[in-house]
Simulated assay, not measured.
Amino acid sequence: MVMDSGVDRPLAEALADELVELTRSLAELAYDLGSDEVTLRRHMVSIQSIDRITQAQLAIADILRSEAPVAARIDGVTLETLAARLRQRLTRTP
């Protein structure tokens, strides 16, 4: 079955699974970096960026797995900046 996005369901599921695995790896990296006080103090902003990336990856995985209409998928994204960027990209004319 092909999704509205043009990506068939098995591919969407596989991509979502890969995003979740990448997210786990990044989360472990952020945890390791944050466990060292010196590194944490020096790189707090970067470690927080890793957290935002992991949240975005999980949101994208949810979008790929969803069978809801596109607008509903994006409405379910809790990272408002990501949702806004997706809406903007979807309204662009080719």
Rank of each mutant, 00 (worst) to 15 (best):
I53R: 08
D32Q: 15
G34W: 00
R65V: 00
R41S: 13
Q48D: 03
A16K: 01
M44H: 12
L86M: 04
L82S: 04
A59M: 06
R42F: 12
Y31H: 15
A61K: 02
A12Q: 05
G6Y: 04
E28D: 08
T93S: 11
L22G: 09
L33C: 10
D36H: 11
A71P: 04
E67Q: 13
H43T: 06
I50N: 03
A72M: 13
R52D: 06
A27F: 08
S49N: 03
V77P: 05
D17R: 12
T54K: 09
T39V: 10
A68S: 13
E80T: 10
V7I: 15
M1L: 14
T81Q: 12
I50S: 04
G76L: 07
I60V: 15
L58D: 04
E18Q: 10
V38Y: 05
A27M: 12
I74F: 03
D62T: 13
E67H: 11
L82P: 04
A71Q: 13
V77S: 07
A59T: 08
T78W: 05
L64Y: 00
T23I: 04
R89K: 07
A59G: 09
S35T: 03
D75T: 00
S46P: 03
A56V: 01
R85I: 08
E21L: 14
Y31R: 15
Q48N: 01
L58I: 10
R85A: 15
